[in-house]
């Protein structure tokens, strides 16, 4: 087992752990930090699986898309009438 596979194993285990925490957490807003951990682990493993310069672009696109999604969910949730 070389260093690349060890790093991939760490990323995969952390992704599964954070996914279970996302499902178990009840509060909608407090789910989002755990989802952020999942997207960190996944964009790390995208580059670890395929070490190619285009993989940096793909990982950055996935990460920016994921944070943009979290941002949209959080701001729509905060725009509700009950929270103001």
């Amino acid at each position: 087992m070389n260093g690349q596979e060890a790093a991939l194993l760490v990323c995969g285990v952390i992704a599964i752990y954070a996914a279970i925490r996302v499902i178990l957490e009840k509060n909608t807003m407090r789910k989002l930090p755990f989802l952020n951990v999942v997207s960190f682990a996944i964009s790390g493993s995208i580059v670890l699986i395929t070490p190619h310069p285009l993989a940096i672009l793909a990982a950055a696109a996935y990460f920016v898309g994921s944070t943009f999604e979290s941002n949209a969910i959080a701001s729509t949730w905060a725009g509700g009438p009950k929270n103001e």
Partner: peptide
């Protein structure tokens, strides 16, 4: 909340190490 909803220094650190892993300093 800022880490969750916009790519800040933590995302920069991750993507920089990804870039160095794939293509060195230019990456």
């Amino acid at each position: 909340g800022n880490i969750v909803s916009s790519p800040d220094a933590s995302a920069g650190t991750l993507l920089a190490s990804c870039g160095v892993y794939a293509a060195g300093i230019p990456g």
